[in-house]
Write a protein that binds this DNA or RNA. Structure first.
Lengths: 188, 188
DNA sequence: CCGAGTGATGAGACCTTGTCCCATCACCAT
DNA sequence: ATGGTGATGGGACAAGGTCTCATCACTCGG
């Protein structure tokens, strides 16, 4: 019944998250995930480069952040561009309805060093992409790196708070974190 | 002849780096490394949690950085404490005689995503340790995080330049990077 | 001098991840 | 229907990593 169902990739992602939440990442085998999705082990590796990648969620976040930076008004400085990027993420990625899924995913990742490693690699790539987007706006070199890093620092801190309790607005949390960081930076 | 030679761990590290440089990380098996060190595969995993860990170099860098922060004069602010930490690293870790080894290691790591992931995890742990050391000095929360991140950012940038060409002083490079970052931060 | 204890090692069975190849199946166009 | 295309299944295979048990060198007390 499963063969040729169109959403193989999505089915694998869902099956993986469910199993990881229920019994843990390392007590879940790839064969198990594939079976639950109605597929074979070899098919799993056709969709994902490795077991960790099934939780990566693609490059949606990167496109969201860099897109918002590029779309910021011409007069906006790096600070405003990063704020726009955080607002975009709050509006389209970390919304109230996705709260539960994001929270589960965060917990699974935090509980496993392997997954955390992968997360850090993604964040590094994200930082590079953000820096490039800022440079594209004419932001000079050291400032672009700094603004990108601070933006991701604020994003991560806000995400931790947002997943901890429901009902809060991610954008507000992120902007508050960014403000605190910028004030601390000015006083250095 | 090798059994009971005292420096098993060091022998494994050397053998690994040599093989990685000569034939690449993923074309080198753990069995090969162990054989070259005169040991068995199972002994390798008694000394290192996994294949990547053989290049981690232990926690010497962490102790160096946090130690220097803790030993900074009481009147010094976070900026001066981080500068002291960078100077300590330049004086005791990234010295001229270790230049070649550090350069080889950097190249191997940069060429392999798996090793880069591990490196990022180490850097994250390092950032946490640095932040804690600064907090211990009474530096308030957002400032401690920021100073630690900027310090590591400067360290990484300086390391890239230092390994690129020999003969330069690491400390001077790192302090220059930090100054540039702080100036950019003040202008945000 | 000898024997028990200790700690590092060797050897090998075993499971999982990840790669690769080939046969198979569904769907589509002619 | 007929052949092409692309996703899948299945299984063999290498390497990473875990675990257990036997072995060896060294030490210390009798």
């Amino acid at each position: 019944m499963a063969r040729w169902d169109p959403n193989a990739r999505q089915r694998l992602e869902r099956a993986a998250l469910e199993l990881f939440v229920r019994q843990g990442y390392d007590r879940t085998t790839v064969a198990e995930i594939a079976e639950r999705a109605g597929l074979a082990k070899s098919t799993f590796f056709r969709h994902f480069a490795d077991k960790r990648e099934v939780l990566s969620g693609g490059d949606a976040l990167t496109r969201l952040l860099t897109g918002a930076v590029a779309a910021a008004p011409p007069g906006a400085g790096p600070r405003q561009a990063v704020e726009a990027a955080l607002a975009a993420v709050g509006a389209q990625a970390f919304t109230a309805e996705r709260h539960e899924t994001v929270r589960e995913r965060q917990q699974v990742v935090a509980a496993n060093p392997e997954l955390t490693e992968r997360e850090l690699l993604k964040r590094e790539a994200l930082a590079a992409a953000l820096t490039a987007a800022l440079r594209e706006r004419g932001v000079p070199e050291p400032t672009a790196v700094l603004a990108a890093v601070l933006g991701l620092l604020a994003l991560r801190a806000a995400l931790a708070r947002w997943t901890a309790r429901p009902g809060q607005d991610f954008t507000a949390l992120a902007l508050a974190e960014l403000t605190a960081l910028c004030e601390a930076a000015a006083a250095l």
